[in-house]
């Protein structure tokens, strides 16, 4: 399966990646190879097999609705590129 340069560019845009000249071709070829490999799975007959997202059918575990106060604020804000007071500061949106 060969991706078109437009498809590669769209995938890059959706992932917020800026591609330099030549990279559309370079990554386009790598992505196409990955897809072709995955494509080889199509030769298996899967009509009778239920699609699953996990290898074994285990139900999700639960937690009870209990509050545990977190002390992560300072730690995370300290790692933020920019903060103002207790808020993360980001480029103007809208």
């Amino acid at each position: 399966m060969k991706l078109t340069p437009e498809e590669v560019q769209k995938i890059a845009d959706l992932a917020r990646l800026e591609l330099r000249p030549g990279e559309v071709e370079k990554y386009g070829e790598q992505l196409s190879n990955i897809l072709s490999n995955i494509e080889s799975l199509k030769k298996f007959q899967t009509d009778t097999i239920e699609p699953t997202a996990h290898a074994i059918e285990v139900p999700t575990p639960f937690r009870n609705d209990e509050v545990v106060l977190s002390d992560a604020r300072e730690l995370t804000l300290a790692n933020a590129p920019e903060r103002e007071g207790d808020l993360f500061k980001v480029a103007k949106v809208l």
Binding site: E84, G85, L87, F88, K89, V90, A91, K92, V93, L94
Partner: peptide, 19 residues
């Protein structure tokens, strides 16, 4: 939540994030 004005300094020109 995104704030478009800082709640205490009232400054604009950026956005602020409260998670």
């Amino acid at each position: 939540k995104l704030l478009h004005e800082h709640p205490t300094t009232r400054s604009k020109g950026a956005s602020w994030v409260d998670l």
